[in-house]
Nucleic acid binder design. Sequence first.
DNA 1: AATCTAATTGAAAACATTTTTCAATAAGGA
DNA 2: TCCTTATTGAAAAATGTTTTCAATTAGATT
Lengths: 144, 144
Amino acid sequence: MDYKAILSQKGHRLSEPRKQVIELLQQSKVALTPQQIHQALQQKNCKLGLVSVYRTLELLTELGLVTVVYDPQLNPGYMLSTLGHHHHIVCQGCHKAFEFAGSNDIDQLIKRVEKETSFQVSDHLLQLFGLCPDCQQKATGGGF
Amino acid sequence: MDYKAILSQKGHRLSEPRKQVIELLQQSKVALTPQQIHQALQQKNCKLGLVSVYRTLELLTELGLVTVVYDPQLNPGYMLSTLGHHHHIVCQGCHKAFEFAGSNDIDQLIKRVEKETSFQVSDHLLQLFGLCPDCQQKATGGGF
DNA sequence: AATCTAATTGAAAACATTTTTCAATAAGGA
DNA sequence: TCCTTATTGAAAAATGTTTTCAATTAGATT
């Protein structure tokens, strides 16, 4: 998906800081905090303020291009997200996160809870936590 | 459930600040931030430091007696939680939150994603958002 | 290519939140 | 009642986020 193109199409300027943040996020397998993004880009000799990182993330979130990923052991981080209804599964070993598609499993649960509570559900937050294949091996294979 | 009894049973002292925080949370229908808890208790003439609120919440979370509730419009708040696997449904109108029980809907989804990703899933974060019955009425009945 | 204009930026300050430190206090067993 | 040690509170430090505003720059206009 061409995040930069989407930005322009929606009438936002394709500034240097925005390009940098997007490119960094595209390469990252883990969710990144604003500070991490800022530091990583400084080290690449991209001169941009931490403030711009915050503002870029805010904008990308508004446009639905970025998702917040919670991790009990870490500060909330940001990842680029595919359009459509996706959630993240996060590895507690290496913190890599991957998207998975929502499906009718969750729809059924929502319908059930709507009946039980009389709520009208319009959104949800779902994340799975566990160990990725690599970290499973390290946990068993590398054990004592 | 007797939260105070559980505290003592696990070898923790039943101090005044801890009692106050627990009692306040027991009465609250919305998730509360540390600051909100601190302020509310100050107004009730309970003298306790904000630091103790943080520490009490940390302890209760460790013991699994308290759950963090995320709300896109608010800072993360804390609620007492029933034991067993429960999640929260949060009203975007009045921010009241209720527990609902996890079930095999979610188990099926987890199994599916485990197959798709080869992760070993050990935990998850699930919250629903929407309108509670009261706020649904206000939204339609109170319209123009 | 040069000009223009408003969106965007960066630096500093303000603000907010969370954690650490350490002496004083108080819970609960002896 | 005394004693021990977990717990507290106040202040400071650390951390994280938002606001402000003059300077810059993307991209449309000429």
